[in-house]
Amino acid sequence: MQSPGTATTKVLATIATPLALVALGATVYQASYAAFTGQTRNSGNEWATGSVKLTDDDNGAARFRVANMLPGDTQTKCITVTADASVASTVKGYAINPVTSTVGLENRVKVTIENGTGGSFADCTGFVASGPALVNDQPLSAIAQVNSYETGFGGWSVAPGVSSKTYRMTWRFDTTGMTQQQVDQMQGAKTGIDMQWEMQSNS
């Protein structure tokens, strides 16, 4: 074996810089081309390790579907939301798709939402609330105003990994101060809402 001769060293030293520049250009071009040319997103096929997933245990069933609701009626049920995140994220809840009635039924159905541990969609037994209620006896009409992640209630900080939280929801039909005429107008009225939980990574 011989030491690199002066000529070899000279040649290599001369081409090293242009070579690096070419490599640089190729890298930038390739990365830019791959990332920024228009393309269709094929969602879910190749999730990055950092993907986040939020699921609940409702199996597509509505939490409340109340027919023939009468004054003073109330009901309490739970739903468990599971976050699977590999980056620190925050989960918030809010309302979407409010169904309003012409007679203002949404002002009469008042909802309380608490968060805690234990309980499930099937059975609330074992639920233990943590902290004060997130929503305390608010009419559906007010909850419908909370309709974006930013204004959402909760603010559940999710650490990387799988974690879940149970939300206990209670509604009551409050007819305080309603005359019989207003009652008559309300018969058959229907109101509704969807609850959505959204998780966003913290950065």
Partner: peptide
């Protein structure tokens, strides 16, 4: 600039219908 992750779940079609009732 953030390329943040998003996920969501929802409970749809909750509804309340008033029955026949009087004072």
């Amino acid at each position: 600039a953030s390329a943040g992750f998003t996920g969501y779940t929802r409970n749809s079609a909750m509804s309340w219908t008033v029955g026949q009732w009087t004072q």
